[in-house]
């Protein structure tokens, strides 16, 4: 991986080795998402793993959005 940025690399990569919250994989309306749990049943979307093409244009599934989910979440 090569970073090409005008920001100092020590600022960009600060804390890269810190322990981070684990992601969980959830299904919401036929969209598989990787989320970081922020509260029971509520998560912040990290990335969309699987969905139909048009769902990528749905702003609700943009990374960073909060989403409520129910059911079984698979921990990564």
């Amino acid at each position: 991986m090569t970073l090409y940025t005008n920001m100092p690399l020590e600022l960009v990569l600060e804390g890269i080795n810190d322990e981070r919250e684990h992601f969980v994989e959830v299904w919401v309306d036929q969209v598989q998402l990787q989320v970081t749990p922020v509260a029971p049943g509520l998560g912040k979307i990290e990335r969309v793993l699987q969905c139909s093409l048009e769902q990528y244009l749905n702003p609700c599934y943009t990374p960073g959005m909060l989403i409520s989910y129910s059911g079984k979440a698979k921990q990564n």
Partner: peptide, 21 residues
């Protein structure tokens, strides 16, 4: 690589399928 959380990021794995869509 997932960058540390102090960075605001644009994820290419989301932008690319968006462009396809």
């Amino acid at each position: 690589m997932v960058l540390p959380p102090q960075n605001k990021t644009t994820k290419y794995e989301h932008i690319i399928p968006q462009l396809v869509a």
